[in-house]
Design a protein around this nucleic acid. Structure first.
Lengths: 195, 195
DNA sequence: GCCTAGAGACCGACTGGTTGGTCTGTCCAA
DNA sequence: TTGGACAGACCAACCAGTCGGTCTCTAGGC
């Protein structure tokens, strides 16, 4: 395939201090590099989400862990993610399919977690799994558009806020009272003043 | 400027049944077309948000109206929005600046609304305006990646779910009890059975 | 009513520039 | 000597934008 793709191979080669020959010695195509880049950060969130899924039976705790690691990936791999979203439009079908599989398995983990939360009665029964799942994916994925490392809020701050917002909208009044969940919520200003 | 930009002018010209000459007779450049496309749908949400801002003194009601119209734009202008996000990466600075201005003014309207809600005491004081604002922008903007017109859920359904999730995470326990807000929340399964 | 001049809408082959990818060749370690 | 890591000039493809030319429609003189 030919044509302009935002970041050119010549640029990549120049900034990484190698050459066209060197690049194509390591990668079959520019698409393959993009695939590798995607795999680099999707593997992180997938691993972390699977860890959360297996290390805990509690959907609320699971979701908290998933979101925290999900947000963190935008700190760890911001350049990778930015490049991926910029270039992924032009990926050849064979690569998009492989990428879609991994993204789907991540989506399913979130959906499964929401399902479990509803079944256990901790999440409100009236919220639909699919749209809520896409809401979580959307709000977190969108951070790549505005998150600035070294900004006012750390990535942990942002993760805590996301968790607070999501759990406040999903948990039943009863579940919100559980003592072991209090650490998942933002401290109210009153409490902060007292400390 | 030269280079590949996802959707080519030749494609646009072919599918709209005109010609290169015709196209460049109406638009100075491909960038100008993109700018016009963006203006088309950003004007819609901006107008609706300003209407909500002026027609109501109540932050909760405002936010509900803003989100509903914000979601709706993805139904009305899905093709426009998809093309814009796909191509906007390559826009010349002069156009991105103009677009950024309109997007910023929309963002400010949402931030202002959140601020007012906190001041009036209806929104929880511990949620930060900036991240919460970006959360709303993120979850709604992301719908362009998954929303399918004619799917299981209508755009109104999706809007209602978003409003429910956001208000449940922002409103204080006290504010949630207000009778006039009950219509903003999803009906619980129990109530649905009774009807 | 008729004819003409001219302006603007529209056409499409062509150009200049840019890009992903190739190919020949060099260097160096085993 | 030989095979793999790397270099960089080069090529074919491809795209935004141009430019000379054509078509259409209207204004206005007769």
């Amino acid at each position: 395939m030919h044509g302009f793709h935002g970041v050119t191979v010549s640029q990549i080669v120049a900034e990484s201090g190698t050459s066209k020959g060197g690049f194509y010695h390591h990668f079959q195509s520019k698409d393959e590099l993009l695939y590798v880049i995607h795999d680099y950060f999707i593997s992180y969130v997938l691993t972390k989400a699977k860890e959360a899924d297996s290390s805990s039976k509690n959907p609320t705790e699971k979701l908290q862990k998933i979101i925290q690691s999900f947000v963190k990936v935008f700190h760890l791999y911001k350049p990778h993610i930015s490049v991926f979203y910029q270039e992924s439009i032009y990926l050849k079908p064979e690569y998009t399919e492989e990428i879609k599989k991994k993204r789907d398995s991540y989506k399913k983990l979130i959906f499964k977690c929401l399902e479990e939360g509803k079944e256990s009665g901790e999440f409100r029964s009236e919220v639909p799994v699919d749209i809520t799942g896409m809401t979580i994916l959307g709000m977190v994925n969108w951070t790549y558009k505005w998150y600035q490392p070294g900004g006012e809020k750390t990535i942990e701050d942002i993760g805590n806020i996301f968790v607070d917002l999501i759990l406040n909208s999903l948990l039943t009044e009863q579940a919100k009272q559980k003592k072991e969940y209090q650490s998942f919520f933002l401290k109210s200003d009153i409490n902060q003043d007292q400390i």
